[in-house]
């Protein structure tokens, strides 16, 4: 975002890109880290890993969107 010239047109495109990719980022965050938590809970038998993984995935996805588009 920094190297490109900032025009209203570029800004609008970035915003549309960001807004459309938000749901898939959050969904894949849940799938990746919730899936990791599920595997961990199958291995250790501790059920709490699944919700922990899901919440972690959502948090990371929100952070990723913030890093990519929100700064």
């Amino acid at each position: 975002m920094s190297e490109q010239k900032r025009t209203p047109e570029n800004d609008g495109r970035d915003f549309a890109n960001a807004a459309w990719s938000v749901p898939s980022y959050i969904l894949s965050g849940i799938l990746v880290w919730g899936g990791a938590g599920w595997l961990l809970s199958r291995w250790t038998g501790v059920y709490a890993f699944i919700p922990i993984g899901v919440i972690l995935g959502v948090g990371l996805a929100v952070y990723l969107v913030y890093v990519k588009y929100g700064r």
Binding site: P8, D11, F15, A18, A19, V22, P23, I26, L27, I30, V54, I55, V58, A61, V62, V65, Y66, Y69, G70, R71
Partner: peptide, 22 residues
């Protein structure tokens, strides 16, 4: 104030959308 509004709009949208997907 487009830049600032855009950022905050996006952040609010992400946080709200997260709830829906949870």
């Amino acid at each position: 104030a487009y830049g600032v509004i855009r950022q905050n709009m996006l952040l609010g949208f992400v946080l709200t959308e997260a709830l829906a997907l949870i």
